Every structure is written in structure tokens, then in C-alpha cells.
Amino acid sequence: MSMTVILSLHGSAMAFGPDAAASVASRISTVLPMTAGWDPSWNVALAAAVEASAVAEEDAADPEAVARTHRWDAARASADATPGPADAVGGLAPFALAESYVRLEMAFSSRDAAGAIDAAATLATHASDLADPFLVTAPDPAEVDGARALWSDATTPATLAPPATADETVIDPVAAAMALARESAALRPAIEDAVARGEGAAVDRMRDERLSAALALAGRLTLQAWRRAGSPDLGAATPNPGEAWVRPNPARAGATLLFDAVSAGSARLELFDVSGRRVGERSITLTAPGPQRVPLDGPGSGSRPAGVYLARVTQGDRVATARFIQAR
């Protein structure tokens, strides 16, 4: 099956709010078999990546450009036989989802678990966007008061149906995303009616059903990406020369740095913030060449503010770097 050409997009704010979208993200890996080598601790990293991305988007230089990646006017698209990424008026969410799918398949292909976590988190976010009836329909001046706020304000953990894994039919991410958007758009009148009647439980049920639909799509695409990448074992992967990985990523207390050492001896580990300022440095001792796992932070290291950082390991003339997100 030919895939739609995807433009490079960026952005990953939440449709329902951080908790709901993170619930979808943290459950994506349930579709992967044991042979994928997915570490359960990465599920926490997935949820943290969703939240970190939302925080980053709050400071975006062009908020409207970011917002377009989370919207899609399903009715407008249905009237247009050839909607595409250039059609930004109705939103770009299906194409943003497909771009994250491409990145996920590439991460699986290179056995880059950190990249897979980042891409899967964005995939889950945009699936949640497309499951939100208020993000896939045009604004309505006659909208029931409080309907949008009640729908988006999930105060209890979502009860999500587990995604299916049996169907191996290859699907086009863009087409599947648009189909999800159409289903979601059709539900908006029922949501507004339930709000008008004060039927909060009905709204909760519909919200969980939509988030389950988001999880179903995100899970199916995750499994498809893994299979198309050759069904790699992420747990057995090690960084290539010149690469380093931080696990988990986003990093929390106790994070580990993985890299390949050319020989036994000493190496220098430096940490830099997004401005290039060095915020940490220490010497590490390597007892043997080959794959290494060392604590990202040494004894007495202080906490870092949330944000994007670069870890750099230097051993002789070999340098390995890893970009990571420091979680809050």
C-alpha cells in the first residue's frame, strides 16, 4: 500500500489535557510482544514525554501554527476530495499523526528506544486530538454552554479498552486518522445534548470511548511500525559509535547513560542545557571496552530544571552525544 507523502511537522499539545493523553501514551506498548524488548519503565517515560511536550508548546513562538497541528475540520475535509498538508485552514492533525508514525518506524528500525518513546508519545497525542469531537469540528456559536470545558476536563483516570493486536492489515496513517476524526465529529451533538441534560456520567462514558478509539489507532500504528521495521528487539540494542542514549528519556532521578567505549580507562561526561551552557561535568572510570551503562548523575549532583539537555561523553578522540529531556 502506498503511503501519503508527509511533510515535517512539529507540536504535541493535548486534546483532553495532559492526564488523558498521557493515559493513551502509557498504554501503547501493550500491543507489542515480549520479543520487542520494551522496558515497562518506558511507559512512564511516554507519559512524561507527553507532559513535557505540552509545557514546551506553551512557550511556542507561533501558538497558532502549533494549534493547527492539533486540529482537523472533518466536515470541511469531507467536502474536499484532496485535502493535504498545505490546507492548513482546517487543521493538520492527521498529517502530524502520520509524521510521528514515520518517525516511530525509523526509531524502531535503528533500535533507538529513546526516539521510539518520543515518537510514540507524539503519536498518542495526535490520536487523542483526533478523538476529540471539539477539535475535529468547526467552532459553533450555538454550542451548549460548558460542553467543551466539561468534555476536556477529565478529573478521573480514563477507563480505556485495550487495543487489539490481531489485525495485521497495513493501514495508511492519514486515512485512518481522518476516519477517526469523522467518527469523533459525529459524536459532538450527543455530547452537547448530554451536557445540556446534566448527564455527566454519559459524558464520561463517551470520553472514555473516544480515548479508547485513540488508543486503538495509536496502538495499531505502533505495532505496524514495529513490524515494518523488522520486529527489532529494543532491549538488546546498544548505541552505535558516536551515539549515547539516556534511559529513561525523559530522564528522572536514577537515569542511566548508555554508550560504547573504545577501551578501558577514563572518560569525561558533560551535560549542557539548550543554550549550550555546561551544567555538569565529571570523570567516569571504564573497566572494559564495549557497551557501558553509567548513572547520568554522579554522587552529590543537584537536580536540573525541566528542559532539553545534551549529554556528551569524551574518551580520547571519540565523542558520543545524547539529547534528552529532563522531566519535572
Rank of each mutant, 00 (worst) to 15 (best):
A61L: 15
S110E: 14
G91Q: 14
R103W: 12
R312A: 14
A96N: 03
A131V: 01
A311Y: 05
M206C: 08
S283L: 13
A154M: 14
A261N: 02
V50K: 09
P40L: 05
A114L: 09
L223P: 01
I325K: 01
S275C: 02
T155C: 11
A253H: 07
L130H: 03
M106D: 14
S29N: 15
R148G: 00
E199V: 02
A177V: 01
Q326C: 03
R228N: 05
A48I: 00
A311Q: 03
A52R: 11
A322C: 07
L223D: 07
P18C: 07
G91H: 13
T165V: 13
T137S: 10
G235Y: 03
A113F: 14
V203I: 00
A216W: 04
A86P: 06
L221W: 08
A25V: 06
P40A: 07
D39Y: 07
R282M: 03
A190T: 11
I191S: 05
S301D: 13
S266Y: 09
P63G: 08
M1L: 09
E270N: 15
G280M: 08
A288L: 05
D167Q: 06
D59R: 14
I191L: 12
F95L: 10
D297T: 14
R207G: 00
A119V: 07
A52E: 13
L257D: 03
R182D: 08
